[in-house]
Nucleic acid binder design. Structure first.
Lengths: 218, 218, 218, 218
DNA sequence: TATGAATGAGCATTCATTCAT
DNA sequence: AATGAATGAATGCTCATTCAT
């Protein structure tokens, strides 16, 4: 990002392994950009190298294969998405008085993540390669989808115990809450093809929280 | 393969329009098989021609391009899926006494379609090419997802008027009913990667109908 | 060689599979030329295609691999060399009165073959790849070296029975006769690097026949 | 590997010229190993560096080029082989009573060298590059083949003078003696591909000496 | 001196597509 | 209408070699 200054400022000083790490990061960033733009098969290593500002063999020096490059890129994106999602769910740990408002808020945050470029590209890329790299796809689903669902289930179980939700199987409640958010969101974003206006995101989140509370409220 | 008469009448000479049509169908069937197996970019025309039992140029005679071939294949699959989905929704036109049972039944039928090979392959293929053929992707979504939602909304509007559902925006109700079905189904089927046992499909449909009725029942 | 005329003369007539066969032959001829010029690893398929006057993929259409191309080329050369060698040995079947003269003549013919471009290139190419394609190398040796030795042994056995040679193990005699020819020839031709003048070839053959008869004559 | 003292004296500090020489030797040894294993083109500098336990640029520091590296390696091997061969021939300087026995012994020693790993690898490597490095190939032949022949010729001339061999052109005698040894040996070792059992080596040497004495004995 | 990192050039191979039959 | 054969373009990957440290 600010490569010019920092590199010019320390041309020889500490830049030993730093240049290497910088380049690796640049490659991974560029790879995500290009993969998201073209898809796995259509993306060519040369375009990634160009985007990263390095020579093609440098890509191969850092990441042995096109496939390896893809896997690292996807896993990194999945971890970021997962962290964002879990952070959103955390807000349910201390819900305060207005449960509907908190659910709406959490839903909106989850939507922002799921409708974001990273998450949509991640979904498209990994599912497109589900046949050729099934383990990678599985990993992505686990670290993003299932992790959120489980975290939500934990919160819902506590809320159930606290009498804020009716007695219910928390896994199912979580699964359905997520579905009420992502289902409409995917439809409206055309699976990430269109940008969903914030107002619509809010409407989806509100409707999801409303329906959820009608069905699961105490 | 075809009605014996027509082929017996013209064994080799002009081959008639029937042989041509047969071949075209064979090519399209083979194309779907191969595309589903390998994905768009990775599928090669030669493999499709082999699967169809014809020579490569014959494919080009019938469908000008690899892209054209893909589009026809995808549209055909989308139409089939859409018809299946709409047939399922039709059962709501005359719901009878037990609304929950009918909703569960409809849900189960929709799930069967959405978890089927055709629909999952269709989703994966079209979304993977969303970047390069956005219009195709849009068409698929419209003819499958949106069409079902609209048909459902029609039914829900009538049920609302009939007092079987509470007053509600029918589009939202339909959107959420679909979401309660497909969301969990996608998670469990790993986006079409795993086969979902019938018992699980039934559980998802039951839970969806239950939650839906709790939220929208009159 | 005379491609222009022959092809121009029959542009569409019988040239059905003929064009294909012509092209395959052209490719194999070109391959031998280029492999002989550059060696296996250094020869690139594009150069071969250029030399053959076809496009690179055409080479791959006819011979799947660079390795396959090499194998076919080498085997073809080996068969030609073998045939030439055996034809030379045949002259010993009816030796006539002057055995020394016939032996010298046979030796000279064998030398001409072994010092020829084809045989030297064959030896260099196959032995250079002995590590990566041991079976090919073995085949070449069998079809060229061993076959000649065995054919010679047959002749020597008969000559022994006829009292023209002393009693001796014919395999050893044949092995040594060949050695007396090829050993000096290889040294003088610098293993095919230099052209050996005919006079020198004659000297080698004469000396070989002389020494052989001194040792094995009756 | 080296005289322990010098290394103990300068363990890591200045490394002295001795460490440098050691490294150069290690590189040359590794180069021969790898070249023998893979051939010139297929051997990559990185594999050589790994085998030598040094970094790639170190190889370039010591020997400028891949070609230079190859040349040094080959020349070194040629010198070793030549020395071994000449040592074998030396035994003819004072033949003693049984000339056949000495000739057999010398032949066996020569065979051991020629069938050894070093000599076979040397022949294969240098002849494979005869086209791209003709001078190197020439040098190898001179230092190995021709040198032996000349040394042998010297001995045979003396033996001729001493009446132990008939009057004869000593160059031709030497050439043929070598041929009677290496020709069969190359056939049986499949040009260095197979290991020739000692018994066979002995048989070849005996037969060579026998034939030679029949032809050239006084 | 020795090395981690980077690069320009090159190659085998595949594929969609088009001719000529 | 159907096909065997041919091709131009593109891609993943490797390697010898050079900087900068």
């Amino acid at each position: 990002m600010s490569s010019g200054t920092s590199r010019a400022a320390e041309p020889a000083g500490g830049a030993g392994p730093r240049g290497r790490i910088d380049k690796r990061q640049a490659i991974l960033r560029a790879a995500f950009t290009v993969f998201a733009r073209r898809g796995y098969e259509q993306a060519c290593v040369r375009e990634i190298a160009d985007e990263a500002g390095v020579a093609k063999p440098t890509v191969y020096n850092h990441l042995n294969d096109k496939e390896t490059l893809f896997r690292h890129t996807v896993i990194a994106a999945a971890d970021t998405v997962a962290a964002d999602n879990l952070a959103a769910v955390e807000r349910l740990r201390d819900p305060g008085g207005d449960l509907g408002a908190v659910l709406t808020d959490v839903g909106l945050r989850l939507l922002r993540v799921c409708c974001g470029e990273r998450a949509t590209a991640l979904r498209r890329l990994s599912s497109a390669q589900a046949a050729s790299m099934p383990d990678l796809f599985e990993t992505v689903i686990e670290r993003t989808g299932l992790a959120v669902r489980d975290a939500l289930a934990d919160r819902f179980a506590r809320l159930s115990l606290a009498g804020r939700l009716r007695e219910c199987p928390p896994d199912q409640a979580a699964e359905q809450f997520v579905a009420l958010l992502t289902g409409p969101a995917e439809t409206r974003s055309r699976f990430g093809t269109r940008r969903v206006p914030v107002a619509e995101q809010r409407a989806v989140a509100t409707a999801a929280a409303d329906t959820f509370l009608r069905a699961y409220g105490s």
